[in-house]
């Protein structure tokens, strides 16, 4: 009884802090502050997912929602503040004070979305059990023991295939905006250098562990990939550069490995089994592991490339 009261208090405080953080992130005029509040929001959100017994989502939220997205926003902010690009962007934005419709349209659409969500929550039949029983009854055939991985990579593998493509298209979008701006002289520090040397192998090991453990416990390709991406971001920040003669083909292949493996497997299963991404139950575990390995590599390289921003290869030079 006491324990449940305590956790209720904790949950209420958590929910209120989440709302408070969201409000202050939106209300502050200082963009740097807004980004930091957003990162704190992501971390608390991960805690909420833990409280809701969804550790898979919590891992993804902490790694991608708070970590990688935070780093991406900070790098975008740094570019916004730089003298060349900052002015160009500032002259293109409309002042919300002069044009109130900019504030009203998002508000109205948010209210509509909220009403729609509230309506669907309240009209749920109390007898509806969700898809949990179906997932558990088919888990033996999925090749993995973690129901979340089973849904993502087997039952709804099609969705994950599209998600991989979305990530890839996002990178293409960033690349189409132009070349990677000149790298500023990195912050030179022996501490940062040592830290990146010490942590990079740990990052790779943890990513491999998360990938492997995803078959029977929370973890999987997206979480592992974002850890690899974080390693890439740390290396980029500490001034590591690729050798000038590294071919760009290698990286393009890495970027496409995940989507290609998915599409290839989809084609093969379509030909042999007659259904897209329907694996034979005996080989399902191995196929999922292979798919996830390629997906992890691609996600990691894509996220690091997104952080780099801009197309990294120019006509005459090798990778900067």
């Amino acid at each position: 009884m006491e324990i449940s009261l305590l956790s209720t208090i904790f949950d209420v405080l958590l929910g209120l802090s989440l709302l408070g953080l969201a409000w202050s992130a939106l209300a502050t005029t200082d963009l740097f502050k807004a980004v930091l509040l957003f990162i704190a929001f992501g971390l608390l959100m991960a805690l909420v997912w833990v409280r809701l017994n969804a550790p898979d989502v919590a891992l993804a939220e902490a790694a991608i929602g708070a970590g990688i997205t935070g780093a991406l926003m900070l790098s975008a902010l740094a570019r916004l503040n730089s003298p060349h690009t900052g002015r160009a962007i500032a002259s293109h934005t409309t002042d919300p004070e002069k044009d109130p419709s900019i504030q009203w349209w998002p508000f109205i659409s948010l209210v509509l979305v909220f009403i729609g969500l509230a309506y669907s929550v309240f009209t749920f039949s109390p007898a509806f059990m969700g898809l949990q029983p179906d997932v558990y009854s088919q888990l033996v055939n999925s090749g993995v023991e973690n129901p979340v991985t089973a849904v993502l990579l087997n039952f709804r593998g099609y969705d994950t295939l599209l998600e991989m493509l979305v990530l890839f298209v996002a990178l293409l979008g960033v690349w189409s905006l132009g070349e990677n701006p000149a790298v500023k002289t990195p912050f030179i520090s022996p501490v940062l250098d040592t830290l990146s040397r010490l942590l990079t192998p740990v990052f790779i090991l943890v990513a491999a562990y998360i990938l492997w453990v995803g078959a029977h416990a929370p973890g999987g390709a997206f979480q592992a990939g974002s850890i690899l991406g974080a390693a890439g971001i740390l290396l980029l920040l500490s001034g590591w550069q690729l050798r000038k003669d590294t071919s760009s083909l290698f990286f393009r292949v890495l970027l496409l490995a995940g989507p290609l493996a998915f599409v290839a497997l989809a084609a093969i299963t379509l030909l042999i089994q007659g259904q897209l991404l329907e694996y034979p139950p005996a080989q399902a575990g191995l196929l999922i592991l292979i798919l996830e390995t390629f997906a992890t590599l691609s996600i990691g390289v894509t996220l690091a490339a997104l952080f780099l921003g801009g197309f990294p290869w120019s006509k005459n030079r090798a990778l900067k």
């Binding site: 912050f187 520090s189 501490v191 940062l192 830290l195 010490l198 942590l199």
Partner: peptide, 17 residues
């Protein structure tokens, strides 16, 4: 151990900045 390592390093980097 990881938090010790990253905490100490990040504190140093922020102070240096």
């Amino acid at each position: 151990l990881l938090v010790l390592l990253s905490g100490a390093s990040v504190a140093h980097l922020i102070a240096k900045g």
